[in-house]
Write a protein that binds this DNA or RNA. Structure first.
Length: 413
RNA sequence: GCGAACGUAGCUCAGUUGGUUAGAGCGUCUGCUUGUGGAGCAGAAAGUCGUGGGUUCAAAUCCCAUCGUUCGCCCCA
């Protein structure tokens, strides 16, 4: 019985070509987020189970958490998201940190899911958060950052839509309709589902759960395109910084319980990938759970799986070159005598792999070609003597005799 | 957790109403001689037909279970 070569269900292997793509994407994320002054942090992949019990969605905790009891009897969970961890960290230094605090991380998370398109058991996520700003300017910045990321990856404004809502405004409206407590929670879920249902189906579901009077009022509220005041201010702020994809959408509520006011969700407008890409919002109550003075916070999380689906759907993924500059092909038994020359070239910044197989020249060339590396450097007796190396471009077939300095220049340009 | 489709060489797939030693293309490897790859020619390796049961004289083909993949639902990223 042989072992399987497949990775664990819902998890991915990153072969070099996959890792290259991931690196490309993560580098873009870092670049944008750092240009707004966010600082990178990280946290352990394991957390005490408790930090998820209070505010993470019920379903996530009960059915999707990877958890176990450690040898010391502690209940431990593999993190399903970053927000509780970062809240814990900020709370731990609540008094000493400088606000507004801008932090980000790119980390992996686990949820026990049934894998399908856009959703796996392990995914990577960018988290960016602002701590300590109550006003809507922080909400606007978070959305602006998300928008800038998409644009830096080549997306155009019409490729996605940013739907924004205010939970506070919504709850207030609901209360006016006489909706409270469990009924309110139920309505949340229904509203969240609205975009997936036809108007008729939605009305039907609504009437099953609410009195006719309440249902009518709710429908009217959801139909209203007039954003509440806070959303209105947010939208005009966004407009002023060039974010044109944002709109008011009263059906956006998001599943996580810790969101307290503004929530947003980014949708792909491509009909082939019509889905929520990622989202975020304000969660003013979470830091305070750790026994310190509460801290207003907004942030968002952007998952790599949905992001990559989005980029694929819009043909925004670049073809990436292998990192290695050249493969050195040795002609004859020169492995030792070539080393000092190779060391010199590497010191000048070249990324060089040596074919140390001792195979015939054509076999070495074939492998070099297959590896995807663009150049080959031939080193034989003649080259070592004359100190002129032969550089070959495998794509064009061009060959040039160059000194070490010229070679470095040629490969670095 | 629920529902559906699929699972044959490394990859993409073919395999007739169950019937001899299971096929193709691409890829891989070897050679076409000794300092030049991508093309060509010649040849080779490679599959207990996802796994385990069952039905049958006979199973890749039918049935059941299980694992995996994919797509929905739930939920969410």
């Amino acid at each position: 019985m042989s072992l399987s070569t497949q990775p664990y269900k819902g998890a991915r292997d990153f072969y070099p070509e996959d890792k290259r793509l991931q690196k490309y994407i993560f580098d873009k994320l870092r670049q944008v987020v750092e240009s707004f002054g966010y600082q990178e942090y990280d946290a352990p992949i394991l957390e005490p189970l408790d930090i998820y019990l209070a505010k993470t969605g019920e379903e996530i905790v009960n059915e999707q958490l990877y958890s176990f009891v450690d040898r010391g009897g502690r209940r431990v969970a593999i993190r399903p998201e970053m927000t509780p961890s970062v809240s814990r960290m900020v709370a731990g230094r609540r008094q000493e940190l400088a606000y507004p605090l801008r932090w980000y991380s790119i980390a992996n998370f686990w949820r026990y899911e049934r894998p399908q398109r856009g959703r796996l058991r392990e995914h990577y996520q960018l988290n960016a958060d602002i701590f300590g700003v109550e006003g809507v300017a922080a909400d606007a910045e978070i959305i602006q950052v998300a928008d800038s990321i998409l644009k830096s990856l080549g997306a155009k404004a019409e490729m996605y839509r940013i739907n924004i809502n205010s939970r506070v405004a919504m709850i207030q409206a609901m209360k006016e309709f006489g909706l409270e407590g469990t009924e309110l929670k139920a309505v949340y879920k229904l509203v969240d589902k609205m975009p997936k249902l036809t108007d008729e189906d939605f009305k039907k579901v609504l009437s099953e759960n609410l009195s006719a009077e309440k249902a009518t009022k709710l429908l009217k509220y959801l139909d209203n395109n007039q954003p509440p005041e806070k959303v209105d201010r947010l939208l005009s702020l966004l407009k002023s910084v060039g974010v044109t994809s944002a709109t008011y959408e009263p059906s956006v509520v998001r599943g996580l319980e810790y969101y307290t006011d503004i929530v947003f969700e980014v949708f792909d407008t491509n009909p082939e990938n019509a889905r929520a890409l990622f989202g975020g919002g304000r969660y003013d109550g979470l830091v305070g759970l750790f026994g310190v003075e509460p801290l207003p916070t907004v942030g968002f999380g952007m998952g790599d799986v949905t992001l990559q689906n989005f980029l694929e759907a819009h043909k925004l993924l670049p073809k990436l070159q292998v990192e290695t500059d050249a493969i050195v092909v040795l002609i004859g038994d020169l492995y030792e005598s070539a080393q000092s020359l190779l060391a010199q070239l590497r010191e000048s910044g070249l990324k060089l792999a040596v074919d140390s197989s001792g195979r015939k020249l054509d076999a070495q060339l074939k492998s070099a070609d297959k590896s995807g590396v663009k150049h080959v450097i031939f080193i034989g007796e003649a080259e070592l003597k004359s100190k002129k190396l032969k550089l070959k471009n495998l794509q064009t077939g061009d060959e040039r005799q160059l000194s070490a300095e010229e070679l470095v220049k040629a490969l670095q340009s």
